[in-house]
């Protein structure tokens, strides 16, 4: 696999397109995960203060 990526004339193009794709897909996962974490925390704070879903 590494040879396919780097051992050719166009290895840099192949490697960079896969690297950009991996970065963007991982960034999407992080965005969803971090957003969920912070919103869950905010919702819990509201729940505890009595203004949440059951407040």
């Amino acid at each position: 696999m590494i040879d396919t990526l780097l051992g050719t004339q166009y290895g840099g193009f192949i490697a960079s397109s896969f690297a950009i794709s991996a970065t963007v897909l991982i960034a999407l996962i992080l965005w969803v995960w971090l957003t969920f974490r912070s919103r869950r925390k905010a919702l819990k704070a509201l729940d505890d203060a009595g203004f949440g879903r059951n407040g």
């Binding site: 919103r39 919702l43 203060a49 949440g52 879903r53 407040g55």
Partner: peptide, 12 residues
Amino acid sequence: IRRQIRTGQRKA
């Protein structure tokens, strides 16, 4: 969840 937070913030 964002919408639930917004509703809670309005209540607060």
